[in-house]
Simulated assay, not measured.
Amino acid sequence: MNHQPVEATTAQSFLPKVSVVIPIYNGEADLPDLLSCLLLQTYPKDQVEYLLVDNNSSDRTLPILQTTAENSPITIRLLSENKIQSSYAARNTGIKAATGEIIAFTDADCRPQPQWLNKLIRPFINSAVVIVAGEIVALPGKSLLEQFADKQETLSQKHTLAHKFCPYGQTANLAIRRQVFTKSGLFRPYLTTGGDADICWRILKANLGKLEFAADAIVQHRHRLTIKELASQWRRYGRSNRYLHELHHIELTREMKTKEYGYILLRWLLKEVPRESIKNIIGKAGFVDFLNTPLGLFTGRERSIGQREAKLPENAHIIEWL
Rank of each mutant, 00 (worst) to 15 (best):
Q4V: 08
Q4G: 11
P5N: 10
V6L: 06
V6G: 01
E7L: 15
E7D: 15
T10Q: 08
S13A: 14
S13G: 03
S13T: 14
F14I: 11
P16Q: 15
K17A: 12
S19R: 09
I22D: 11
I24C: 05
I24M: 10
Y25W: 14
Y25I: 13
D30Q: 13
L31T: 13
L35K: 06
K45C: 03
D46L: 06
Y50K: 03
L51R: 08
S57G: 06
S58Y: 01
T61G: 03
T61F: 04
L62H: 02
P63H: 10
Q66L: 07
T67G: 05
A69G: 09
E70L: 14
N71G: 09
I76H: 02
Q85R: 12
R91A: 13
A97E: 10
A98V: 05
T99V: 08
A104K: 08
F105C: 05
T106L: 10
D107Q: 14
D109L: 07
Q113V: 04
Q115F: 10
Q115N: 15
N118M: 01
I121K: 04
I121W: 02
V129N: 05
V130N: 07
A138Q: 13
A138L: 07
L139R: 12
S143L: 03
S143R: 13
S143K: 12
L145V: 06
E146F: 03
E146M: 14
E146C: 14
K151W: 00
E153Y: 06
E153S: 12
Q157E: 14
Q157D: 06
Q157M: 13
L161Y: 05
A162Q: 15
H163T: 04
H163S: 14
F165S: 10
P167C: 03
G169V: 04
Q170W: 07
T171C: 14
F181Q: 12
F181T: 10
T182N: 15
S184G: 13
S184I: 08
L186I: 05
L191R: 00
T193Y: 05
G195Y: 07
A197Y: 09
A197L: 08
A197R: 09
I199W: 07
C200A: 12
R202I: 04
R202W: 01
I203E: 07
N207R: 14
L211D: 07
A215T: 02
D216W: 00
D216F: 00
A217I: 02
I218F: 03
R222K: 15
H223E: 12
R224A: 09
L225I: 07
I227R: 08
E229I: 02
G238F: 07
S240M: 11
N241D: 07
I250T: 11
I250L: 10
L252S: 01
R254C: 04
T258M: 12
T258K: 11
E260A: 12
I264Y: 05
L265F: 10
L266S: 11
L266N: 10
L269W: 12
K271V: 09
E272K: 00
E272A: 00
R275C: 01
N280T: 04
I282L: 02
G286R: 09
G286S: 13
D289Y: 01
F290C: 04
L295C: 04
F298K: 08
R301L: 14
R303C: 08
R303E: 14
Q307R: 06
A310G: 06
A310K: 02
A310H: 00
K311D: 09
K311H: 06
L312V: 10
E314F: 08
N315E: 15
L322H: 08
